[in-house]
Design a protein around this nucleic acid. Sequence first.
DNA 1: AGACATTATTTATGAAGTAAACTATGTCAC
DNA 2: GTGACATAGTTTACTTCATAAATAATGTCT
Lengths: 358, 358
Amino acid sequence: MDKAQIGNSDLISTVNSRLILQAVRVMQPTYRASVARQTGLKPATVTGIVNDLLSQQILSEVPAATPTGSDESGTRWGRPPLMLQVNADAKRIVAIDLEPDRIRVALTDLLVNVLNYQEQAIDRFSEPEAIIKTMLKLAGRALEDVDRQQLQGVGVSLPGLIDREAGVLISSTNMPKWRDVPIRDILQKELGVPVQVERSIHLAAVYEKWSDPNHAHRTTLMLTLRTGVGISIMHHGHLLTGRRGFEGEIGHTVVDLNGKACECGGKGCLETFVSASAIVARAAEMIHQGKCQGLLTAMRGGTDLRPELIYKFAKRGDRDCARIVQEIGKYLGIAIGNMINLFAPDEVVICGSIDMVE
Amino acid sequence: MDKAQIGNSDLISTVNSRLILQAVRVMQPTYRASVARQTGLKPATVTGIVNDLLSQQILSEVPAATPTGSDESGTRWGRPPLMLQVNADAKRIVAIDLEPDRIRVALTDLLVNVLNYQEQAIDRFSEPEAIIKTMLKLAGRALEDVDRQQLQGVGVSLPGLIDREAGVLISSTNMPKWRDVPIRDILQKELGVPVQVERSIHLAAVYEKWSDPNHAHRTTLMLTLRTGVGISIMHHGHLLTGRRGFEGEIGHTVVDLNGKACECGGKGCLETFVSASAIVARAAEMIHQGKCQGLLTAMRGGTDLRPELIYKFAKRGDRDCARIVQEIGKYLGIAIGNMINLFAPDEVVICGSIDMVE
DNA sequence: AGACATTATTTATGAAGTAAACTATGTCAC
DNA sequence: GTGACATAGTTTACTTCATAAATAATGTCT
């Protein structure tokens, strides 16, 4: 049997602190009595924890306010509350987004306002060591004026299969040299602060939940389009994740068993229809059959064959290109429909765009 | 914002009691010091909670035991532990399984040993009121010799879509008269004890987790075959369930977009290939085409056309019937493969059998 | 009989939530 | 202005739990 969470006063305080911090973040500006009503905690408890958070400067008190009681004539009474809000400046967070073609590093405050942003192009075929060096350089710059005490931690978004427990990037389709790289430990050692890693495609869902306080008991299905298709499911406030991070591979879901062979060994996988390379291949095939003449002309004019070009032609009324786009929708629709049957989500979010990686 | 679990001493005690009870159940017979090591709780804490559980008679102490310490020569030392085990007789549970063609009621003890079992055939077209009356009759009989104090509660397994929060059976394919029946509240009122409802197809997964202590951090995909196909996912110890209980509908996942129209409005749903009625229809179609002559002969002999008959012929070497069975496997395989891509489960369990309902 | 190892309990302490009393602070009526 | 009123927030005394540390219990072995 694994060790589970045990109950002690530590558990109580983390649970309640989070609850209160969350409540203030969502309702701010707000005040102690309101927080108590919302969370179900008693006023005395809220006072204690709020004072604690005030002394840590994670919350701050705002002076002015008017009484909350009122009647139909607009008469107000009662002691005016002391308003609370999150002191965004109390902490700093560094976010590192590794993508096949670039690294993006942001320094944010507690409310995830971006204070500083850097972007640097990389070659997706580089050695991981070199790329990590670049990440460290950018992170170092972001942290130049940050007190280490103030730094909450570093979050890293990775484009591929990860092992969450070990903090390892197992593999990445678009970055072939990355194989079992223990990136969390490397960064943690170099930066000397706690580092967390997560799979890129899931982070949109995490943010969605964070920014929407009513999300706790809903189920959201989020599809992320990029070079391929990823799926994330936020279920009752929890992100569905496998131990090894292998989940979310909707791209290799079979949507047409008579379809083309896929790299994965399957036949008719979703990605044989909706990935950037599949779309381009499909267009090339049609050009070969003498269709999509518009595309051919554009290419002779020096333009690259890219998904967005096909879409542009489709919008302009090119029948053949429109058919390609329509097919993408059809297969995406089948996949989404299947997911809806399985999860009965309260909402489906599609984000990103189908891009090529050089 | 919804009200979340707040932290107070109640939380601590429930968390720790459950932890300890669970540990004892899994390791029994065991002893306090071992429980403390396993759970991470301190010995004094375990003593306190165990004594509490002993006084409630949920646990019992077994006298004999030998010292636990030992060296290579087999020498043993130390104070011999007081062994603990779950006192299965402390509580009684009533389990009611409603199926389209029968009601099954069991009285069990805390370890889910069946003490008493009753089964009664029902007509799936009956009014819900009549069926509930039968359920109450059987439950009443099961409870005849049970002290109400001893009764932990009643669990009901329902064959269809449920609303867990409301305890309502929303609809059931095989029991057309059941529409939005608030069965939990009805039973609760009549029996005067807490009633919980769950969807039948998911309960195999729940039991699987309960009976396997190492299950907490695994992901299991469980397919349940009956008149159709249901899927349950046990993920990190939690059953994936939607608020309205609409999930698990893998049967209406599209596996062949050129397939037949399905009742649900889709085309090529899994259930158009692997449900009992679909299989029979497929065989009838083949007979019409002059195939499956063996089946035809059997049917002229008065045998009903049922899935198991087709399977019997397939096993005997009937080529056409074998093809039907093979097709079932093919489509089931696609659906399962897709699920594996999505969830990367640690294991896939297929249970049940494809049955007809009269 | 006494050393030893291990299990189990007791006692004292501390952390956290909470009920209830109490203080604080505004508005309004007079 | 003064006091009633309503609501916000704090203080105090108390309870519940976990826990560290001391202690007791119980067997084997020398």
